[in-house]
Structure formats: structure tokens, C-alpha cells
Design a protein around this nucleic acid. Structure first.
Lengths: 151, 151
DNA sequence: CCGTATCCATTCCGATACTG
DNA sequence: CAGTATCGGAATGGATACGG
């Protein structure tokens, strides 16, 4: 009766995205992958996630084309999970989510991990959205076109 | 025994963010709010979500400070749910998620709703992350500093 | 029209034991 | 170390009935 509705066929790209990464673990796995984590055990330790859940989430992300399972580089019989181009394309999502958290979910004295620009050694600056005129883009400057033909 | 672990105290801003918006509905509610939806019934119709779940999610987002419940503008006895500044700050997250979905989850001929720039009437251009030198920022240009003092 | 309350099925998730 | 199998409790989500 209460079968969960899939969002995979929605005409809204946000909904489709959430269908894949809109759970408690997917984006944290992707975050770790950006941070160089590749092995099952590394994910497990970093996330403190149950192993069966991790197995399931890795499998789903591989099926979704976000991760790819490749033979381990150390010659062991196991696998490593690396980001595909599709997975790497999630980088802006992780960064904006991170910046929202930094700016809105921490008290002034609280310690938090930060994303650092290698070149400058400084925290990655705020993401700004640019409109067609090159100016910053705010919610009020946009609207959703309900259904658009292919691009 | 199997109580879900809260991510609210994590030192990672991504984890804290996911603790609030990392479920199936929260970001879709926020997306609708950006699109002008304010009323319970509008959310319910747009999302095709069960009413008890919607009640729960709206309450949680209000508690989290993402939405604010205000008296209905039409004088009825009910409420409207509007984005707080904290909620509006999620705009880049929605946009990047949308763009990831558009670029990676649709076939070439498939119709999808699009975010349009009011000024130009054209789709909002790709978000680019800028490093300290003003150049585009890629995953390889960054690393996570494990624990940073307050900013 | 706006919610709340209840019931039930499904899903999520953690703990643990087990295998190679 | 890298998973798989199983279990039970908690959370999620849908249908629906009910009250303001």
C-alpha cells in the first residue's frame, strides 16, 4: 500500500537528483570520495555507518553511475570506489551545501572542518550565482519554467 | 537499539546540513517555496505528499529556522510558510542540484522544468566555483581541513 | 480549506554473526 | 579486510477518517 513514490520520472531536475542523493548517506559518501576515500573500510570508519547499509548505498551509487567500482590498486581481491564524471559533477552541490552549513548551522566559537583552496591555502570563497548580465543572481531574479523542451 | 544517529553535532558542515535537509521532502518543499508556494494545500498538491508527512516536514523546517509560519495573507485562520533568510540561503544548493539533474539525469529529448533568469528570459547559466585567484575551482584544487577554529 | 490522528506497509538503519 | 545475512527497532510514507 505505502510503496514509496519514485521521483525518477519527475520533470523537475531537483526531484530526480533527490531521488538519487536525497537520503542520509549518499552525499556523505560522495563528500568522502572527494576527500580521497576509496575503500569500503575507510568509508565505514569515516561515516560510522552500518556495513550492510554501506554495501547497499555503494551499490546504488554505482548503479546510478555516480561511483565506479574498480579493482583495488594494492592488488588485494577487493574493490575501490571512485567518482565517475557524473559523480564529480556533484562537486558544486557539496560545496554549496557545505557553505550553507558553515554559515547557518555553527555557533561562532564552534570548530568545523573547512574546504581549503590548495593554491592559496585559504577557505574556498562563497559561491555566487551569475545571471545573464554577469551580476549576482538571487531567488527573486528567477522563476521556474514549468516544462521546457530539450536543450 | 537502532536509534538513528544525529548528524547535528558533526564538525562537518555538510553533515549538519544533511541532518536538516537530507531527506526525501525537505529540499522539494524549499524548492516550491522559492517558486512562490506558501500554503499547505499548494505544497500538498505540488508534491503529492501525504498530509501527515507534510505536516511533520513543515514543522521540522520551521523548527530548524528554514521556514517561518505566518498568518495567512487572505485573512483565513491558517498559516503560510515563507522562507527565512536562512532558508533563502539554500538557493545555491537548489540551483546546483537542479543543474546536476539537468545535465546528468535527463535524456536528450526529455522535457524538464527549467530555472529562468527573469532579466534575460534565458536559463540560468552554469554555476562556477571561483578559487582565490578568480579561476574556476575543481575538486582537485581543494582539500578538507579537518578541524578549523572559528572564523 | 487546513491541519491532526490513526493505522498499516515499507524502508531505513544499527548491531551482530558469519564467510572467504 | 571486505563484504553478506539476518534480525529488530525506528523512521518514513500513504490512505483515510476526523475536527476546526
Amino acid at each position: 500500500m505505502a510503496a514509496r513514490k519514485s521521483l525518477a520520472d519527475s520533470s523537475c531536475p531537483v526531484a530526480r537528483a533527490i531521488d538519487i542523493v536525497g537520503d542520509r548517506w549518499a552525499l556523505l559518501i560522495v563528500r568522502d570520495a572527494f576527500d580521497g576515500v576509496r575503500r569500503f573500510g575507510q568509508f565505514q570508519e569515516s561515516l560510522d555507518i552500518a556495513r550492510n547499509i554501506l554495501t547497499d548505498r555503494l551499490r546504488r551509487l554505482v548503479e546510478a553511475g555516480v561511483l565506479e567500482a574498480v579493482a583495488a590498486s594494492d592488488g588485494s581481491a577487493y574493490q575501490e570506489y571512485i567518482l565517475t564524471p557524473k559523480g564529480e559533477a556533484l562537486f558544486p552541490v557539496i560545496v554549496t551545501l557545505r557553505q550553507w552549513g558553515e554559515g547557518n548551522l555553527f555557533g561562532r566559537g564552534e570548530k568545523r572542518s573547512q574546504l581549503i583552496d590548495r593554491a592559496s591555502g585559504r577557505p574556498v570563497p562563497k559561491v555566487t550565482l551569475r545571471g545573464a548580465d554577469g551580476g549576482a543572481l538571487a531567488p527573486a531574479d528567477t522563476f521556474v519554467k514549468k516544462v521546457a523542451a530539450r536543450v
